[in-house]
Design a protein around this nucleic acid. Structure first.
Lengths: 335, 335
DNA sequence: TTGAAAGCGCTAACAT
DNA sequence: ATGTTAGCGCTTTCAA
């Protein structure tokens, strides 16, 4: 037998660096260097080691390296919503957020473990940092992450403690754009649909209110509702049945809500945009397909994802990081 | 000082089991047992250890446990497509697949690391098993996974080696349903739109062909195209410009393709479903919103995801596993 | 019910 | 350019 022991004696288990070292009469550290830091090893040994590793079907034991190096090269992405039934998992756009995150993490050689807030609590994955998508209605999700002591960043609105890093769209500006658009079309009696308990929706409402307050129009209704199409329908239907059509413009906190609202209007014979103009939020894929096609505030999800990833990696590396509100644009369509 | 050494001497680094053990004058193994296998430790010590751990802010070092136990409680989910630009990341439905997978993995206490095939190759995550979403055009993605020696299952069509476990929709049956529907509406000159190099699309085409062959109708065109809306438009537009409207029914391998085809038809003044009936595939959310709303073959993504997770976990546990083709249904709408 | 010893596979630190 | 030693934090095995 050769020098370095600790190998598995030629069995058929997965080979380790010690096995390769034995095979070649080298020390395992040399094998390690040849595989992970080629420049520190003679060209010939390097090739020899690489070939042997390949031939023996060697694969790095990531857990061992992670333990030794005290880091995991992994970022946890925590989804605040329940996967199958809520907005995130039934609408396409946050997928773009994931896409942006993946792209950046991939480029940085980082893995991404995807969990829900519940799973994160029950079985914390091994990760160097956390990206939280959606901060929860009262910041409850963020509190859970905070407790782990890991560096983290949040997608959402800036409503938490000052030190917290938040990346999100400029929701206030979105509200202002929506107001300007509706006012420009001559709307004077406006409706807001959305859950203002939710930080992002709250900011949208604030921006909207600010612009309307500076005009001769008024907000005649502010109906709390979830981000879904049925919620939009249920918010507007009863209203119409109760007091008839007493508004001429709607700003909805999501496109899905806007669609639900329009369905409710149409079901009662009202024309959109003839009698009521509607502005949604997100510019989701369905917005262009819907009839009438939806005027909406577009968020740049992909870039947002990239920013989230960059910022969490910077935090992990101990660099200073700042929050960021991303620009939004109004996409004019029929509604 | 107390007995078990190996702790960090009261510094402010994250405490380990040894620190807790020192604090309480116990052996670290007792701490380990108290935290992970409560029944093997006296009630009083158990509570003591738990409280101390809590107080000291102890968090399990997952890498160390993984190394010791030679498993990671992690399943890698590999996306075959490029995240930001291709079908998977711009359409909502595979998110449902992810949702189903997450739900099952969560229930089984497993983490999920999400990677692309490229990242998986470049920086293999530590995982006990792999779920591959989409097998690639010529099975190339599956080959990469196969090479790792890890247990894996695939979402897609059964076209690989016999031992491979595949979960997917019954694409042949989907093709048959589409054919029956179009034939039932009196269509006689049919068009297929989709990339038959792609296993799932191929099966859809095969089922479609089989039914049409048994009728007095004919397939007058089979246009290869990607799964996207623009691809559908590009597939049909030039055709119409070249030879006019010489078909009365379309079966598209995805709803996106169907929408593109309909746009191309409408742009040239043809009526859908008046002159041409169209059946899509996936029953994606946009299908109901589109005008005309889309008749489509529905796949049950969420259940598919759950099955994928169950099967890969069974494989990891060394249990026998079988492939599965899930039922599909035709959803009749305007088109 | 609790403990002592050993070692999972790897790499940092210090030789040579 | 290569080797020796040690140890990351945990749990398995064997013992008391």
């Amino acid at each position: 037998m050769a020098k370095g022991s600790g190998s598995n004696g030629g069995g058929n288990a997965r080979p380790t660096m010690a096995d390769i070292a034995n095979e070649l009469g080298l020390a395992k550290i040399t094998v390690s260097r040849a595989l992970s830091n080629p420049s520190s090893v003679k060209e010939s040994t390097r090739r020899l080691v690489r070939e042997t590793a390949e031939r023996m079907g060697y694969r790095l034991n990531v857990s061992a390296r992670n333990l030794r190096q005290q880091r995991t090269r992994t970022i946890a992405v925590v989804i605040e919503m329940t996967p199958s039934h809520e907005r995130l998992m039934s609408e396409p756009y946050p997928l773009l957020l994931l896409g942006g995150i993946m792209q950046e993490l991939t480029a940085a050689g980082q893995n991404m473990v995807l969990t829900t807030i519940d799973l994160f609590t029950a079985a914390p994955p091994s990760a160097d940092g956390v990206i939280l998508l959606g901060q929860g209605v009262h910041d409850d999700a963020a509190a859970v992450i905070e407790a782990t002591g890991l560096p983290y960043v949040v997608w959402g609105a800036e409503h938490g403690p000052p030190g917290r890093i938040v990346v999100g769209s400029d929701n206030r500006e979105g509200g202002r754009l929506a107001a300007d658009h509706l006012l420009g079309r001559g709307c004077r009696r406006l409706l807001f649909l959305g859950d203002a308990e939710h930080g992002e929706a709250e900011d949208r409402l604030r921006g909207f209110e600010a612009r309307v307050a500076a005009s001769d129009a008024a907000i005649v209704g502010n109906i709390p509702c979830a981000f879904t199409l049925p919620a939009g329908r249920e918010a507007v239907g009863p209203l119409l049945d109760a007091r008839g059509l007493d508004f001429d413009g709607i700003f909805a906190a999501s496109d899905a809500i806007a669609m639900g609202a329009i369905e409710a209007l149409q079901a009662r014979g009202h024309r959109v945009p003839g009698e009521v103009s509607v502005v949604g939020f997100d510019d989701s894929p369905g917005a262009a397909l819907f009839s009438p096609s939806l005027t909406s505030i577009r968020q740049d999800w992909a870039v947002g994802g990239e920013l989230l990833a960059q910022k969490v990696l910077a935090k992990v590396a101990g660099q200073p990081v700042e929050s960021r509100a991303m620009p939004v644009v109004l996409v004019k369509r029929e509604s």
